[in-house]
Design a protein around this nucleic acid. Structure first.
Lengths: 361, 361
DNA sequence: ATGAAAGCGCTAACAC
DNA sequence: GTGTTAGCGCTTTCAT
C-alpha cells in the first residue's frame, strides 16, 4: 500500500528539494506541502514548526519560518479545522447590533477572542423568533468552538439542537434558571427591585417606567412595579398601579421622548422614571428640557446600561451600570478554556450591576 | 487500487443499508455518509439532494430530506468549503464597533449576507495600524469569499497580501483614488465643501469644526475649512483660520461638550459648528443648553451620520446623512455576485450623501 | 439521474 | 525530533 517512491522521492535530501508540485493547482496560494518542500522537511514537521514550535529543533523552525515569510504562506484554517476539529471560530448571537446596548460585549468578545487566536462570527437573531432556527443551522454548520448567546434561544428545538451539537454555549445578559450550558449574566428581577427601592429612598413617591417589550425588560419591570407597590401599600390600596409605557425593541431616543409625554398625560404626579435604556433616558431628559420640566427637581430619571454618553448628559444621567465588557471577556474566556479541554469550575457567573448615582435622581 | 468491496458493499441494496459506520467516530454528529446510508443512496447523491435539488429525482430528494430532518444532520461547512473552495464566509473590518457610525453598515451586511446563505466574520482593526496585519492574517486564513474594509488597509504590506490572496475586496466609506478591488463609498472632500457652502448660504459667517483625528475626518475638515475661507476671502485676508477642535477617535458626547467650550473660549464669535459625528453634535447641543446658548439662533450645529436619535434631539439635529444600510447592502451584493463567478459592471459605487436640514441650522 | 474515485489542505497517531 | 500513514467530511470529476 506504500506509495511508490516516485511520488515524494527526495524529501530527505535538501539538494533535490525542488520537486515540482504534482500539478500547478488552481489559483490558490501555497500550501504547507510547498512550505515543507522548500524547507526540505516533511509537511508534518512544517505544521509543527508553526503550531507547536517547541516540538522541533531550532534550526528547522527557523528554516520553515523563513520560507513561510518569504512565500507569504497563510495556513488554511478550513483544512486545519477539519483535521483537528478545532475551528478557532466563535459565534455570537445578539438580538440586534443597533441599539448599542450589546456593543461593549461584542467589542470585548472580538478582542479577547482575537488575542487568543479566535475569530468572532456575528449573527443577529432579530427580536422575533423566526430567524433563530436558520441562524442556528448556519452557526452549527461552521462547527464553532463555542457559541455566545444574548439571553437564550427561545425556540425549544433550537435549544435541543444546540445542546445535541456538543458545542460549548455561554448564555449571557441574564440569569436563566435552566442554562443550556454556561451562563454569564445578572438578575433582571433584582435590578427592578433595587431601582424601585433606590428611588423610594431618594424620596420619590410616584414611580413610572418606560421599557422595551422584550422578555428581560418585562421581567425587570414587573419586579420594579411589585417592589414599588410593596413599598407603598397605600397606592395599591387606592387601586393604583405603576404607570408603564412599553415600546417595541430596539429602544430609541424618540421613544423616550414620546414615553415621557404619554406617561405625564396619564398621571402628571409622576416624579420618577425608570428607563430600560440610557438612550431612552436621554430622550426623557431632552423632552423634559423641551417642555420646561426640571430634572431632578420635578422629575427623577434613571436609565440602564451606562453607555459612553451617559456621564456627559445634562444633567449627568443616573443609571444602572452593566459591565458589558466583563460579560464579553468572561464569556470569551469560558469558551477558550473549554475548547482547550479544561473544565470550568463554576458554569454560572453573576457579574451583578451597580446603580450609578449621578445628577438626575 | 479499487477499494475492496467489503468497505461499502451494499449501498445499492436498500434492504442491507444499515451497514455499521466503519467505526463510531469521535463525539461529532452525523455525516453525509450516515445520511446517504440511511437513505440508501451514494453520499454524492445525498449531497446533490441538499445543494442542487433539481438535479435529483423527486423521490430520492424526499427520502434524503426526510433522513436529514430525522437525524438532525447539519452539513459541515468546513469540509464543504475545503472541497468546493467556497467558504460562504465574508469578513468585515471596522475600526471599532463602538461609536456606532458603522453599525448600520454592519447590520445591513449581516442581513444581506445571511439571506444569501453567507455569514459575517467581524474584525476590529482599532484606529492604530498595529493590529491590522495580524487581523488580516486571521482573515485570509479562513479563505473568506470576500472582505469588506472600512476605509482601506493602511499597511502597504497588508494591501499587497490581500491583493495576492485573490479574495474579492470591497473598500467602503470612502472614495480612494486607487482601490484594491471594488469600492462603495462617498467623497469626504465633497461633504466638507458642501457643508461649508450650506452654512454660508444660511447666513453663518464664522464657521468652526469639531472632528475626530482619523484620516477621513481630517480630509473632510480640510475641505470644509478651504471652502469656508474661499467663500469669505476677508477672513483669510485678516489672517484668520477656521477654528478646529480635534479629538481622538472614537467620538463621544463628552468630546462634543468639551469641544464647544474650547472653541467658544478661543473665539466667542463662532456661529456655526460642523461636528464629525452626530453624537458629538448632540454633545454640542447639550452643552449649549447647559450654558444658555440658543440653538439655532446664536449657534448653528450640524452633525454627520444621521443616527437613529438625530431626528429626535432638541432641537432636531441637522446632519449629513450617509446611507450605511445602502453601503452594507451594496458591498454584500458585490461580494455575492463576485463569488458566484460573475463580474461586477462598475467596481466603483458612489452612494453620495444628503444634507438633512432640521432645526439646528 | 446516480455512483465511484480522488482529492481539498491539514493534523492526529503512530512509527522510527 | 522527524517522518509516514491515514483520514477529517465534503465536493469535483468522470463514468455509467
Amino acid at each position: 500500500m506504500k506509495k511508490p517512491a516516485i511520488d515524494a522521492p527526495d524529501l530527505a535530501d535538501p539538494a533535490v528539494a525542488a520537486t515540482p508540485a504534482r500539478k500547478s493547482r488552481k489559483g490558490a496560494g501555497p500550501t504547507i506541502r510547498d512550505v515543507a518542500r522548500m524547507a526540505s522537511v516533511a509537511p508534518m514537521t512544517a505544521s509543527r514548526a508553526l503550531n507547536n514550535p517547541q516540538a522541533v529543533s531550532d534550526e528547522i523552525r527557523q528554516r520553515v519560518l523563513e520560507v513561510v515569510e518569504r512565500i507569504g504562506y497563510v495556513p488554511n484554517m478550513l483544512a486545519g479545522g477539519l483535521a483537528s476539529k478545532k475551528s478557532r471560530l466563535v459565534a455570537a448571537v445578539v438580538p440586534t447590533i443597533t441599539g448599542s446596548v450589546f456593543l461593549e460585549m461584542v467589542q470585548a468578545l472580538t478582542e479577547t477572542l482575537g488575542d487568543a487566536g479566535y475569530q468572532l462570527m456575528l449573527g443577529q437573531s432579530g427580536y422575533q423568533d423566526s430567524r433563530e432556527d436558520a441562524l442556528l443551522e448556519a452557526i452549527i454548520g461552521r462547527r464553532p468552538d463555542g457559541v455566545v448567546l444574548t439571553g437564550t434561544m427561545r425556540s425549544e428545538q433550537a435549544r435541543r439542537k444546540l445542546l445535541a451539537s456538543g458545542i460549548p454555549v455561554v448564555e449571557t445578559w441574564d440569569l436563566t434558571p435552566t442554562p443550556i450550558d454556561m451562563l454569564v449574566g445578572f438578575s433582571h428581577e433584582r435590578i427592578g427591585k433595587s431601582v424601585a427601592e433606590y428611588l423610594h429612598r431618594r424620596g420619590r413617591r410616584r414611580l413610572a417606567a418606560i421599557s422595551a417589550n422584550d422578555d428581560r425588560a418585562v421581567r425587570r419591570n414587573k419586579a420594579f412595579a411589585d417592589a414599588a407597590l410593596a413599598l407603598q401599600p397605600e397606592l395599591a390600596a387606592r387601586g393604583l398601579e405603576v404607570p408603564t409605557w412599553s415600546v417595541p425593541a430596539p429602544t430609541t431616543l424618540g421613544s423616550g421622548r414620546a414615553g415621557l409625554r404619554e406617561l405625564l398625560a396619564r398621571d402628571p404626579s409622576i416624579d420618577a422614571i425608570f428607563c430600560s435604556s440610557d438612550m431612552m433616558a436621554l430622550g426623557v431628559l431632552l423632552e423634559a428640557h423641551a417642555s420646561g420640566i426640571r430634572v431632578p427637581e420635578q422629575l427623577a430619571v434613571i436609565g440602564l446600561g451606562d453607555q459612553s454618553f451617559s456621564a456627559d448628559t445634562w444633567p449627568p444621567l443616573s443609571t444602572v451600570r452593566i459591565d458589558g465588557t466583563a460579560i464579553g471577556a468572561t464569556a470569551a474566556r469560558c469558551i477558550i478554556t473549554r475548547s482547550e479541554g479544561k473544565t470550568i469550575a463554576d458554569p454560572v457567573c453573576d457579574v451583578g450591576y451597580i446603580i450609578v448615582e449621578r445628577s438626575t435622581t
